[in-house]
């Protein structure tokens, strides 16, 4: 009889790897935005400085890096004022690591919620990424303000055409973090002890990314591997766009895009496959 009837929905154990229901996520857009709002309000409500933390964090990091890596270690900033040199790296890196860190704990941090109510689980990582994007955009605005201030003082503006790639770079960073984060999220849900190792790896990964040094000082024999990191072309294109120190490296950017797309598809498929099954484990 059930075959003749038209049912709205059906639940069974079969899950298709690639049948992503983006329409459903759109139906839950109110929830998505609600989570973004919750994250932004809850995180800054109890702190004395409130939302100023968003700005204070990159500024303090920049000053620290300037003292340690600029003054003490004397790493080249390619003639760019140190404050402006470090900020792009710090903004992109912290955007990436914030997105990755929140995505990879999707299951572990939301297990109670997931065990009580249904909604498309992808809402959680997506909302995290949106709230980190808001923070990142505020930081980016700070960068632009400082940048304009520097121009006003010493008139050394060198904006190049690749600045139009900025939105793409940010999207690339977010997609890279989401893809990698989704893959890690299903693994850490299963193997919690990997968590510590991953935290360590992420910290080290920053040094493989041109945050505190320019890509140009990387030795020739390491360059191929170095540019495979999608964050390298992201940060370098950022700097090129604002400072015209180097010419735009289009090829690594394309490779980075390809790597990111592969990661993202793998991540989405794994997530889709395991999001409900993992509920029996966590």
């Amino acid at each position: 009889m059930s075959n003749n009837l038209q049912w709205d929905w059906k639940i069974d154990h079969k899950i298709s790897l690639f049948k992503w229901d983006f329409k459903e996520i759109w139906q839950y857009k109110d929830l998505l935005l609600r989570f973004v709002r919750r994250d932004l309000i809850a995180n800054y409500q109890q702190t004395i400085l409130g939302p100023f933390w968003i700005l204070l964090q990159p500024v303090l990091t920049t000053i620290t890096y300037y003292i340690i890596f600029g003054k003490i270690a004397k790493i080249s900033t390619e003639g760019i004022p140190p404050l402006l040199f470090y900020l792009p790296g710090i903004i992109i890196w912290s955007y990436f690591s914030d997105c990755l860190n929140s995505t990879m704990y999707t299951f572990l941090h939301n297990s109670t919620l997931f065990s009580k109510v249904y909604f498309p689980r992808l809402i959680i990582p997506l909302s995290n990424i949106i709230s980190h994007t808001v923070r990142m955009l505020v930081q980016l605005a700070l960068f632009v303000v400082i940048y304009v201030a520097f121009i006003a003082v010493d008139h050394s503006a060198h904006i190049s055409a690749s600045i139009i790639l900025m939105p793409f770079i940010l999207l690339l960073t977010a997609a890279f973090a989401l893809g990698a984060g989704l893959i890690i999220s299903v693994i850490t849900a299963r193997y919690r002890d990997l968590d510590y190792a991953l935290q360590f790896i992420i910290r080290l990964f920053m040094f493989a990314t041109p945050v505190i040094y320019p890509a140009s000082i990387v030795p020739e024999n390491l360059k191929t591997i170095f540019w495979l990191n999608p964050l390298t072309p992201a940060i370098e294109t950022f700097r090129t766009g604002f400072f015209s120190t180097n010419t735009l490296q289009l090829q690594p950017l394309l490779v980075a895009t390809a790597i990111t797309i592969i990661l993202l598809i793998t991540g989405l498929a794994l997530f889709k496959k395991l999001e409900t099954k993992l509920m029996d484990i966590i």
Partner: peptide
């Protein structure tokens, strides 16, 4: 409620479901 999957078998349904497995979820 679509929180966990059946090992075998099917559930068919019509209409929007709301599950109250606890109050104050989230």
């Amino acid at each position: 409620s679509r929180i966990t999957l059946p090992t075998s078998g099917c559930v068919y349904g019509n209409g929007r479901i709301a599950s109250l497995l606890e109050i104050g979820t989230g």
